[in-house]
Design a binder for these strands. Structure first.
Lengths: 283, 283
DNA sequence: TGTAATATGGAATTGATATTTCATCAGAGC
DNA sequence: GCTCTGATGAAATATCAATTCCATATTACA
């Protein structure tokens, strides 16, 4: 007869919520109890087992299954899937936006889609770093650089734009810095001048430019403290660094956003300048 | 002897992360593979089953268990609990974070506030440009550049990082380009080679670097079409440009964000490459 | 008040999943 | 070059959890 029910199971949390509220009054006592608990503690449902949830809600596991079935699901597991989806969507809305944009751009949806893709990639990266930045590391890095004589900046290729802006900013802020840029022959000599009283900032992302890695290793071996900005704990830079930051830049069309890295680099530069001003004297 | 290990299983994600990083170098290959995957895709671990995660990470389920045990957990399930805990603690979404950031960026103090300021400036700029970009101009600029022989890139000082990334991207995309960078003496000669079959991208913001303006004027006088990215209709670049974009970058602590300009520049580069691919032939 | 329909609790079952075990393999140390 | 130790893969196993079933209780209705 009314086996039609099987098809209209809610696909997302909002419609599930709506479905529950709609039937609220027509639900049997125990089922209603589950419904109330589900809306109040959606996170518990996402992770718990049927048994554990049942205990918390004060019902039997079988009631949970019945509840799910009343809503049109196959069983408890299917319903739980919706609760889990909700949890991961809360964190990945940007990622989804990005992937649809990618699909659009691939389908040839025009230049606007490409542009939106880069904007979204940059926004994602910024939101990401805003959440994940480690304040203690920031303090450490600033302290370290504030006490340095010369700040050596190491970056090649993809990361080079950040380095050049950093060099520009440090110059404006009257902080002595040395940008190690070209693949030309003088780099080794330049690095040779660095002492433990100096400091270095190295920036590199996978695939790590070998020159940057080599130079960072060399400079670290001379006892120069290194602040690294890289993309993974497994980066070779992380291993030689005194302090390192993990920055996950979203990419689009094969090009990584630099927004998060830029923001971090600039924050470090300005903070170092501020710190030096506070410490006074040293001119 | 070292059976003490059993007790020190990390209780939260941060210490788990720390534990992984600490042992990074001493881990066997497959286990390290799991470690890398776990740190890169923590969400997957929270939700998946041992089998599904193992497939994604390219290992056997047993390796997952071994990994968990190495970290001091009883088994995979216990470790997964930590990943789940992390997910339920992370409450708000990206957008919420950014807007609260914006609210308190000016209120706070310390280095974190500086960092937040830069992130806010960047995301504001991005939001602005996403709203105000002129699609017709975008089309025009892409058409113009897609038909060009060599793309000359003009930018100095503050805008130079964008130019260098643009040059990098164009190179990767196999679009011939020439970056006019140094204040050195050769620029005039370089520009002298440009013909009306080429094109130029000029980037400059107030206060406009005089070299960029002069060069843009010179190249335009030779009949070379110029795409300009600048900040006002009164900009000298707007006057010599064939197409120009207005980009209003927010600044913080005296330094302008480059995020919006970057996104626009990259979108142009990729769109040009796409257009050329569509036009085919031309190799 | 009696009867039927539905709801509920509890246990058995079925299915899936983590874990363990064992055989094989790679590499370090002698 | 050989042996031993530790790592790895694959499959068997034990565990655990969802589901189903059945007996019982509750409610609705006549």
């Amino acid at each position: 007869m009314s086996d039609v029910e099987t098809i209209n199971a809610p696909r997302d949390f909002d419609s599930l919520r709506a479905a529950i509220l709609e039937r609220r009054d027509s639900l049997p006592k125990r089922i209603a109890q589950v419904a109330a608990y589900a809306l109040d503690n959606p996170d518990d449902i996402a992770f718990g087992t049927a048994a554990s949830i049942a205990t918390l809600a004060g019902v039997q596991p079988s009631t949970l299954v019945r509840f799910a079935q009343q809503l049109g699901f196959d069983g408890f597991t299917a319903m739980q899937g919706v609760f889990r989806e909700r949890l991961r969507e809360r964190t990945s809305s940007y990622d989804e936006r990005l992937s649809t944009l990618r699909a659009k751009a691939d389908a040839g949806a025009g230049h606007r889609a490409v542009f939106d893709g880069f904007v979204t990639a940059a926004s994602t990266s910024l939101a990401d770093i805003a959440r994940s930045i480690d304040e203690a590391h920031l303090e450490q890095a600033v302290d370290l650089l504030a006490g340095a004589g010369t700040v050596y900046i190491l970056a090649k290729r993809r990361s080079y734009p950040v380095a050049s802006y950093l060099a520009y900013a440090l110059g404006k802020l009257k902080i002595r810095s040395q940008l190690i840029e070209s693949a030309g022959g003088l780099n080794a000599e330049m690095i040779g001048f660095a002492t433990p009283k100096d400091a270095a900032i190295a920036i590199s992302f996978s695939p790590y430019a070998s020159a940057t890695v080599d130079e960072a290793r060399a400079i670290a071996r001379q006892g120069v403290p290194v602040v690294a900005i890289t993309d993974s704990a497994f980066s070779p830079l992380a291993q030689v660094a005194t302090v390192w930051f993990e920055v996950a830049e979203a990419d689009f069309g094969g090009f990584r956003s630099l927004s998060a890295t830029m923001a971090l680099a600039m924050a470090i530069a300005v903070s170092v300048a501020e710190k030096r001003r506070l410490l006074g004297g040293k001119r």
